[in-house]
Every structure is written in structure tokens, then in C-alpha cells.
């Protein structure tokens, strides 16, 4: 595979993606940062732990992250998949990872990731975004600025009632 990096948004900046996603049926690359599915992590845990690059795991939005609480320290990044942007389960998954389980490294939104949800994603604990194919990453960046007033605490404790 050629080293042609995709661009992602990380911490509200456009950067080259330093991870590649390895499909379940592809061989593991010797080095480099990779994302693998949760199933692959479960079946190839030892090999994956022994690799040199960073390791990320991709969660479907139906997973209860509490099931992998004990493994979280192993992951350098967790991607949560949006099969379609209007399926809101991944918001809860990210929030549980950040707030309940105290996961502090990258949580990345992948799949049907669009500008108009990106701010909500951030407020639920995502900090990296792989914008949907065919959609402008620059336009998506504008989504963070659309709304600045937040009425409720999410992972941020900056709701209006506490500012008043």
C-alpha cells in the first residue's frame, strides 16, 4: 500500500492521518499505526500487542464500551463508527468512554461523519474526525463554530447555568 495519507480533523485542525485502517482479511503491516476491528483485537490480541506502531480499535456503535473497560489502557486510539449520521448511538458510546471509563486518548468518529453533527460529537468526547467521503473537510471544520452556547454539561462542564 502506498503511503498516501488521508486527512482528518484532530483537535479542530486538519492534519494528515497517521493511522491506517487494516481490514479484517488483510495482513498486519510490520510497523506503523493501525486501526483494527474489535473482533480482530479479540482474536489476535497477543500479536497486536507485540507490534511496534500505535494500536487503535474500531467499535461498532452497538458495543457497550464497559465490556472492554479492562483493555482500554492498551489502545492508543478508539474509533467509533457512524453507519449513518442519524444513528445517534455512537454519541453515547463516546460519552461513556470519556466520562465513565476515563479514557483520555484519541476517540475518532468514522463513517458517515458530517459537518452538522461534528460539534455534538466533540461535546460527547470525540476529538478526531474522519469526514465522510465526498464531503469537504474544510467545510466540516466550520461546524465547530456554528453554535457556541451550550445549555448542558456534557464532557465539557461549561454549560450556561454555571456561567450565569
Amino acid at each position: 500500500m502506498a503511503t498516501c495519507f488521508m486527512q482528518i480533523i484532530r483537535n479542530r485542525k486538519i492534519v494528515d492521518d497517521d493511522f491506517v485502517t487494516v481490514p479484517n482479511d488483510a495482513a498486519l503491516p510490520e510497523s506503523g499505526n493501525i486501526f483494527v476491528s474489535l473482533e480482530r483485537w479479540r482474536s489476535e490480541r497477543d500479536r497486536l500487542s507485540a507490534r511496534s506502531g500505535k494500536l487503535g480499535v474500531i467499535l461498532q456503535n452497538t458495543v457497550d464500551p464497559r465490556e472492554i473497560a479492562d483493555d482500554l489502557a492498551t489502545f492508543d486510539a478508539i474509533a467509533v463508527h457512524f453507519p449513518i449520521y442519524r444513528d445517534g448511538r455512537a454519541f453515547s458510546v463516546a460519552r461513556i468512554l470519556r466520562q465513565r471509563l476515563g479514557y483520555e486518548r484519541e476517540i475518532r468518529a468514522v463513517g458517515n461523519v458530517l459537518r452538522d453533527q461534528i460539534l455534538f460529537m466533540e461535546r460527547c468526547g470525540f476529538d478526531a474526525y474522519q469526514v465522510a467521503d465526498g464531503k469537504s473537510i474544510e467545510s466540516a471544520l466550520g461546524g465547530f463554530e456554528d453554535l457556541t452556547v451550550t445549555y448542558q454539561d456534557a464532557i465539557d462542564a461549561r454549560s450556561v447555568p454555571r456561567q450565569r
Binding site: G88, F91, S92, F120, T150, Y151, Q152
Partner: peptide
């Protein structure tokens, strides 16, 4: 009302 307005987790129930 305020809690539910633009609640980031519950916009796509």
C-alpha cells in the same frame, strides 16, 4: 427545556 436544547448526545434518538 434548557437541558434538552441541543443536547449533544440526544439529537439523533
Amino acid at each position: 427545556r434548557q437541558w434538552s436544547t441541543f443536547h449533544p448526545e440526544f439529537a439523533f434518538l
